[in-house]
Simulated assay, not measured.
Amino acid sequence: MSGFPFTPDPRLTGLVIAHRNAALIADRVLPRLGMPVPTRQFRYLKFDFSQGITIPDTKVGRKGTPNQVEFYATEVADQVEDYGLSDVIPNDDVTNAPTGYDPRDFAATKLIELVDLDREVRVANVVFDAATYPSGNKETLSGTSQWDDPDSTPIEDVQDAMDAMIMRPNKLVLGRPVWTRLRRHPKIIAAISTSGTESGVATLTAVADLLEIPEIVVGDAWVNTAKKGQTVTRTRAWGKHAALLHVPASLSSTTDGTPAFGYTAVYGTRVSGETPAKVGLRGGVEITSGESVAEVIASSELGHLFTNAVS
């Protein structure tokens, strides 16, 4: 509460850091940099990819000198934002808790789960936002072109998009409804040997091999979109869209020069701790868990979006 100092708790911080070590979907789509940014404000590099495919005159005369070229990138300013939540726990709840259960531990982990879900929604929203992509790197499917129509051509759609991208994508990101229908598509099933299907349903590995894409990421998360107090309305965080992305397996910093569709800049480490709270007769604690991050779209040319991949 206001007027009390926040005290980070190494034990609680350890719990929320351990939670992040799980295979979070958001971290697979926009992975965290290996090195935290040194300050809240940071700069990252955007590249002009035409400089890598524009060939100058490379011929050198017997007494001539090689032509000079210059490689450059544009620095872009950005900053991390704080994301966190808190929960007030009366001291009586801690004192009277059953053996083996600490309400402070439970609160710390549940709070960070909600922070993670919020991050997953942010990542899904930016990756599946048509405004993120240049005009030639997006398309909206409709009618018989949608992948839940048996006459659609999902294999050709994905392969053609991959061939048109300036760098080969290494991830196909799908909402669960898209994957469920794609893996049952008759043309997918027909293109895969029986070893790659189970009762008429294609496996992730088989479809990845067919499309020659190293990883397929399926977003499963549900989100309640109703306002507080209203009847719960469940919505898929990743919707009915699909995106091809080129995201390196690891990135060290915002300026390491490795082209990437996007990544997550991190400031410091996750934190969880407590503040004394004036609650009940014997007081209590306010548990807070959170982190400071920024989701960065560094090179939108390294992605291709299919909006409304299924109906």
Rank of each mutant, 00 (worst) to 15 (best):
residue 65 T to G: 00
residue 66 P to A: 12
residue 67 N to R: 15
residue 67 N to V: 13
residue 67 N to L: 06
residue 68 Q to M: 13
residue 69 V to E: 04
residue 70 E to H: 09
residue 71 F to V: 00
residue 71 F to N: 08
residue 71 F to M: 04
residue 72 Y to K: 08
residue 72 Y to R: 12
residue 73 A to E: 10
residue 74 T to R: 11
residue 74 T to H: 02
residue 75 E to P: 11
residue 75 E to K: 09
residue 76 V to L: 07
residue 77 A to D: 08
residue 81 E to T: 06
residue 83 Y to H: 13
residue 84 G to H: 11
residue 85 L to P: 00
residue 86 S to E: 10
residue 86 S to T: 11
residue 87 D to I: 04
residue 88 V to P: 00
residue 88 V to C: 01
residue 90 P to S: 05
residue 91 N to C: 00
residue 94 V to Q: 05
residue 95 T to W: 12
residue 95 T to E: 12
residue 95 T to H: 05
residue 96 N to K: 13
residue 96 N to A: 09
residue 96 N to F: 15
residue 96 N to M: 11
residue 97 A to G: 06
residue 98 P to H: 07
residue 100 G to P: 13
residue 100 G to R: 14
residue 101 Y to C: 10
residue 102 D to H: 12
residue 102 D to W: 05
residue 103 P to R: 13
residue 104 R to N: 03
residue 104 R to Q: 07
residue 104 R to W: 01
residue 105 D to T: 05
residue 105 D to H: 15
residue 105 D to M: 02
residue 106 F to H: 08
residue 106 F to D: 10
residue 106 F to Q: 07
residue 106 F to V: 14
residue 107 A to N: 09
residue 108 A to N: 10
residue 108 A to Q: 06
residue 109 T to Y: 07
residue 109 T to E: 11
residue 109 T to W: 04
residue 110 K to R: 15
residue 112 I to F: 15
residue 112 I to R: 07
residue 112 I to G: 01
residue 112 I to K: 03
residue 113 E to Q: 15
residue 113 E to L: 12
residue 114 L to G: 13
residue 116 D to N: 13
residue 116 D to Q: 05
residue 117 L to D: 14
residue 117 L to Y: 00
residue 117 L to K: 15
residue 118 D to Q: 15
residue 118 D to S: 09
residue 120 E to Y: 01
residue 121 V to I: 07
residue 122 R to E: 14
residue 123 V to W: 07
residue 123 V to S: 09
residue 125 N to L: 01
residue 126 V to G: 00
residue 126 V to N: 01
residue 127 V to K: 10
